[in-house]
Amino acid sequence: MASLPVLNQPPHQSGALLDHLARRVRTRSETVLAPLGLRTRHLVTLTVLRDHGSSTQQALAATLGIDSTNLVGLLNDLEADHLIERRRSPQDRRRHVVDLTDAGVKKLAKAEFALAAVEDEVLAALTFEQREQLYSLLQQATAATDVVACAGSEDEPMPPPMRS
């Protein structure tokens, strides 16, 4: 059976490779985060709080792109481990402000160190310069798709890209 030629197809398609690499990173990341008592969603929340400072629960839910009900469960996990604290907003007593604790800063640093080792493992075939170029290209592609996604839906804001 002869294969049919495909017209106007780019010579390389990166989607499957990116997905494969992402699965490897995700699997290894989950493995190194588990002993720290963290999941990816915890890590993203802690990173947002570190990088952007205190936040109301409502603003944090919007930044993370999750329902406020789901955020409460997530924050309960982090608060139980003393990684964040919630307090009433002095400006509006109906709102809660979420802060990263010193323990949260330390745990996040440990997690980022562990995740850097995962990247070193998964991207070992690339030189430092190639890894920097990959990061720059992925950041550029992500920024472009974030603009398209945000233009299409205000309900799904994207979290900022993380760099370990």
Results as ranks from 00 to 15, higher is better:
4 L>T: 13
6 V>S: 13
6 V>F: 12
7 L>T: 13
7 L>S: 12
10 P>W: 10
10 P>D: 12
10 P>L: 15
12 H>V: 15
14 S>Q: 12
16 A>F: 12
17 L>T: 00
17 L>E: 15
18 L>N: 11
19 D>P: 00
19 D>Y: 14
20 H>G: 11
21 L>G: 07
22 A>R: 12
22 A>T: 11
22 A>P: 05
23 R>Y: 14
25 V>W: 07
25 V>C: 05
27 T>L: 10
29 S>V: 00
29 S>M: 06
30 E>C: 05
30 E>D: 12
32 V>T: 06
33 L>R: 02
36 L>Q: 03
37 G>W: 00
40 T>R: 10
40 T>Y: 10
42 H>G: 07
42 H>T: 00
43 L>P: 02
43 L>K: 04
44 V>A: 01
45 T>I: 07
49 L>Q: 03
51 D>L: 07
53 G>M: 08
61 A>V: 08
63 T>Y: 04
63 T>M: 11
64 L>R: 14
65 G>T: 00
67 D>I: 11
68 S>F: 12
69 T>W: 11
69 T>S: 14
69 T>A: 13
70 N>M: 09
72 V>T: 15
73 G>N: 14
74 L>R: 08
74 L>N: 05
75 L>M: 10
76 N>A: 14
77 D>N: 14
78 L>R: 01
80 A>T: 15
80 A>I: 08
81 D>C: 04
82 H>W: 09
82 H>D: 13
84 I>N: 06
86 R>M: 08
86 R>T: 11
87 R>H: 11
87 R>V: 08
89 S>F: 06
89 S>K: 00
91 Q>A: 07
92 D>F: 07
92 D>Y: 09
94 R>S: 15
101 T>V: 01
102 D>R: 02
103 A>H: 06
104 G>D: 01
109 A>M: 02
109 A>P: 01
111 A>C: 03
114 A>P: 03
115 L>E: 00
115 L>R: 01
117 A>W: 05
119 E>F: 10
119 E>W: 02
123 L>K: 02
124 A>T: 07
126 L>M: 08
127 T>M: 05
128 F>C: 03
130 Q>W: 05
130 Q>F: 05
133 Q>T: 14
135 Y>M: 00
135 Y>F: 10
135 Y>V: 02
139 Q>H: 09
142 T>D: 11
142 T>W: 06
143 A>Y: 07
144 A>D: 13
144 A>P: 04
146 D>H: 15
147 V>Y: 14
148 V>A: 14
151 A>I: 02
151 A>W: 07
151 A>Y: 09
152 G>F: 09
153 S>V: 08
156 E>P: 05
156 E>Y: 10
157 P>C: 08
159 P>S: 10
159 P>Y: 10
